[in-house]
Amino acid sequence: MAVMQPACFLTLPSELRNSIYTYVFDSLPECEELDAPPERLLLLSAPIFRFENRTTYLDSAYHNIQARRKLAVLATCRQIHDEAHLMALSKTSFHISGECTYPDLFNIKSRPLNPSKIGAIRHLTLTARISHLRALNETWGGLPFGHAGLDLDTLTIIPRRPDCSTSAYAEVADLSQSHTLAYIFAETLKSLRNVGAVEVRNSACFNDVVWRIVYRSLVYRTWRWGGECCGVRFEASPDADNERDAWFKVHFGDGKTGSDVGEEVIRLAGGEMPDRDAPGM
Rank of each mutant, 00 (worst) to 15 (best):
S93T: 12
H95S: 02
I96W: 01
I96N: 00
G98R: 11
G98H: 05
G98C: 02
G98F: 04
C100H: 08
C100Q: 06
T101H: 02
P103N: 08
P103D: 03
D104H: 15
D104F: 15
D104G: 06
L105M: 09
L105A: 06
L105F: 08
F106G: 04
N107M: 14
I108G: 00
I108E: 04
I108F: 01
I108D: 01
K109G: 12
K109N: 08
K109E: 11
K109I: 08
R111A: 14
R111D: 05
R111V: 13
P112W: 02
P112I: 04
P112F: 06
L113R: 00
L113D: 00
L113C: 03
N114Y: 03
P115Q: 06
P115W: 05
S116E: 10
K117I: 14
I118C: 07
I118M: 11
G119D: 05
A120S: 11
A120Y: 00
I121R: 01
I121M: 07
I121C: 03
I121S: 01
R122Q: 12
R122M: 05
R122T: 01
R122L: 04
H123Q: 14
L124A: 12
L124Q: 09
L124N: 08
L126W: 05
T127F: 02
T127R: 11
T127H: 09
R129F: 02
R129Q: 11
R129D: 10
I130L: 13
I130V: 14
S131D: 15
H132K: 14
H132V: 07
R134A: 08
A135Y: 13
A135S: 15
L136Y: 05
E138A: 10
T139E: 15
T139R: 15
W140D: 07
W140H: 14
W140P: 05
W140F: 13
G141V: 05
G142M: 09
G142A: 05
G142E: 06
L143D: 09
P144N: 12
P144H: 10
P144R: 11
P144S: 13
F145E: 02
F145W: 08
F145Q: 04
G146F: 04
H147I: 01
H147G: 00
A148E: 12
G149M: 03
G149C: 02
D151L: 09
L152W: 06
D153S: 09
